[in-house]
């Protein structure tokens, strides 16, 4: 029964309507814009969901350092975006990245801790550059802080939810989540209408 509620809640969060969820209470300023960006931007949310699912399929000893690297890189992403004017993460690239992450997660291959940390850091950087560029210092600082916290919380919550589900239903649940990430990634990358 609990699983049904959980699945219902998860399905609710996947609805397109949540793309506007950061506007539910209006504009709360750059910190909250950055914080809620993973929910508002499907490309950013998808790659972060991909890395969270991948982390959930790895031993916790591997996840611990990887999460710290992710947090660190999430802080630098917006600053790199500002400094070198990197292109924003588009749906097609995000879809391809999600397919790779989800694919690795499906097979549950145990990866070296260093590699997982590098992947987590790279994804955090990718997600960090997905936000809007702000020019004034105060907004930039608030937005950067919000983005870092948002990325970290998004991945942490998804990892924790999957870890709990896997501990109750077995590791197959993580593989199912990985397959969802692959499916959504394929749609984002291949379906017509996906912005290039």
């Amino acid at each position: 029964m609990r699983l049904r509620y959980l699945a219902g809640a998860f399905a609710f969060f996947l609805q397109p309507g949540t793309a506007q969820s950061h506007e539910a209470f209006g504009d709360l300023g750059p910190f909250y814009q950055g914080l809620l960006h993973p929910l508002a931007d499907p490309a950013q949310g998808l790659v972060l969901a991909g890395i969270a699912v991948l982390l959930a399929r790895q031993p916790v000893q591997v996840v611990r350092p990887a999460f710290l690297v992710l947090l660190l890189c999430a802080c630098f992403g917006p600053l790199i975006h500002l400094a070198v004017s990197t292109p924003s993460l588009d749906s097609r690239s995000a879809g391809l990245v999600a397919v790779i992450l989800g694919g690795v997660a499906i097979f549950g291959i145990a990866l070296p801790a260093g590699l997982v940390a590098i992947m987590a850091g790279a994804i955090a950087l990718l997600a960090g550059i997905a936000g809007d560029v702000l020019t004034d210092v105060r907004s930039l600082l608030l937005s950067t802080g919000g983005t870092a916290v948002g990325i970290a919380i998004f991945v942490l919550f998804l990892w924790a939810a999957l870890d709990i589900i896997q501990s109750r239903l077995g590791r197959l649940a993580g593989a199912v989540a990985g397959s969802w990430v692959v499916a959504i990634g394929v749609m984002a990358a291949a379906l017509p209408g996906a912005p290039a």
């Binding site: 996840v63 919380i153 942490l156 924790a160």
Partner: peptide
């Protein structure tokens, strides 16, 4: 959110 973050961090 604070409670949830705390619980998730303690788990990790």
């Amino acid at each position: 959110v604070v409670w949830a973050v705390g619980a998730a961090l303690y788990r990790l």
